[in-house]
Nucleic acid binder design. Structure first.
Lengths: 307, 307
DNA sequence: CGACCGGCATCAGCGTTTCTGATCGAGGGT
DNA sequence: ACCCTCGATCAGAAACGCTGATGCCGGTCG
């Protein structure tokens, strides 16, 4: 299949456009990018002339409707471009002995830690959505991400670069409730029972509430206390203290004063996956192999192949 | 957050690289792209020099390991770039009166057809995975895609451009069996009961088998007859004739001599979604509104926001 | 009210990039 | 042995993209 025939839209122009939009200033963008203000002006003029549309309102500088749209295209495009470059230049360099692992907060499982070599390892905890970008940019060699999914369903991840995802583990889910909660003694809970409850909102550490809403197909799941850290023990403690419910993998023990009740419906699991760029090399390969004993691999770049 | 600082990797160079790789020929690519062979040679040299890696073996011309990797980056990149360009230039042109609708084979539902205006409409049936690209390229104004999904889960689609997906319908699933089949009189079937059966392999028309394997987490689901068309009636007839089983939305009636048995486990639905680029305008807006009476919208560009 | 100042547009000029066209060496087929 | 195709390389010409200077507009302050 032939790849398109248009091309143009020089990434340099896109980059200055994005910068101008972010700073709301031509001269500011020029300073940041190391250009003359004149050059920046010409860049924007070139883009607008090429597309036949005004992209920015001047005085004050703000993107037009078309400009907004171009930003939506340009930002991921530049991300991918940098990712491609980083990936390829990495292939040129010899594989270093050091290994950097980027992990989402709930994705670091004791088994995982046991599989790591003793030395020259950096473990970096990042928000889930930034891990693919970190891999792509070469900031990390291996990624561990987690999320809610139907059993055996791969996770949905931002598509910034051709990454390979491998299933590491799946665990059932449990709702953490304070011991005195009326539902705390049930053997199992359905998500529908808990729509009207108040939930901890912990986007960095836990499972985001909008994912629950999507899974159940309703709004609801009102946020109570918001926790911006990544520490899971704090989260369970908050649940024990009655600040709201949390849904966590069943492998996480509840804090004293709390109970973890298995979630029975819908059939969701907490899935963790290993992410890597292309062929693993050097120490990354060893760790990757150790983490994925039952190999169940899937490409995430083009998810629709499986849909 | 600032967008990366590297840039370079001129798309023109990437385009000639992709073309050279596809044609396995420098001069062939030159002919196709309207360059001199000399220019193509210099393009490749520039890329290789820039990255510090050989990308192509000469004589015969074939991508190296690094070249393969670059292709994986470059192809979606160019796709996105063209999509961005097409999207923006479309904004420049006045919205035409004509409406082109790209639909996956199983996604065209009677209700959908009823919602269409009487004139100036083109309905084009495409493989599911090509619909986002068609929208992005401006070949179609609206897309209708379908697929297997957990209830209330959005579909997984190739991420070529910022598209908006809206739920149109969800239907339960049914397995089509010949009337004489031992399981034909069951009230319901579980997917696990059918791993060892032979299945129709109809990637263009039906639900792909590898999606079933993913849903059940096992290999199995051996392909029997392969059907490359997109006609659903043929598919049901093939199932009736005993050429293999098919899984179809329960809204599709079985052919004479066949029975449709509801699928009870796992909890999967046949979901159809409406796709559009940014803000709908002109007649597309009317149709889009008509198709999505209960609005349940979601951005597909960055699926991880919900996971 | 007028001068000033910051910010974007425009222009000429020049250095660099990036084509073309010609030439060369290496293989492969006749 | 010859020719023909293919890719690499080189010199020159055209095109491109940057800088620095200048112009214009709007807001601000004496």
């Amino acid at each position: 299949m032939p790849v398109g025939t248009l091309v143009t839209m020089d990434p340099h122009l896109l980059r200055t456009f994005v910068t101008v939009a972010r700073l709301a200033s031509f001269s500011g963008a020029a300073r940041e990018l190391g250009y003359t203000q004149s050059a920046v002006s010409q860049h924007i003029a070139a883009l607008e002339g090429d597309l036949g549309l005004p992209l920015l309102a001047r005085r004050p500088v703000a993107p037009t409707r078309a400009g907004e749209r171009l930003l939506e295209h340009a930002r991921p495009l530049l991300l991918r471009l940098d990712a491609a470059r980083a990936d390829l230049t990495r292939m040129a360099a010899a594989p270093a002995g050091d290994l950097t692992l980027a992990a989402a907060p709930l994705a670091v499982h004791p088994d995982t830690l046991a599989a790591l070599p003793a030395t020259r390892v950096t473990l970096r905890v990042l928000p889930r959505d930034e891990i693919p970008a970190a891999l792509a940019a070469g900031t990390a060699d291996l990624g561990i991400v987690d999320g809610l999914a139907a059993p055996n369903d791969p996770l949905r991840l931002p598509d910034v670069a051709p990454l390979t995802a491998t299933r590491v583990a799946e665990a059932p889910l449990a709702v953490h409730l304070p011991a005195g909660h009326p539902l705390a003694h049930r053997p199992g809970l359905r998500l529908g029972d808990l729509i009207d409850a108040r939930w901890l909102d912990a986007p960095a550490a836990g499972l985001p509430l909008d994912r629950l809403r999507a899974a159940h197909g309703t709004p609801g799941f009102r946020p109570a206390l918001r926790y911006d850290g990544t520490d899971v023990r704090t989260l369970t403690a908050l649940a024990a203290a009655g600040h709201g419910l949390t849904l966590l993998p069943a492998t996480i023990p509840p804090a004293p004063g709390a109970t973890a009740v298995p979630l029975t419906e819908p059939r969701l699991v907490h899935r963790t996956e290993l992410l890597r760029t292309g062929e693993p090399a050097g120490p990354a390969a060893t760790v990757a192999a150790a983490l994925t004993t039952p190999p169940q691999s899937a490409r995430v770049g083009h998810p629709a192949r499986r849909g």
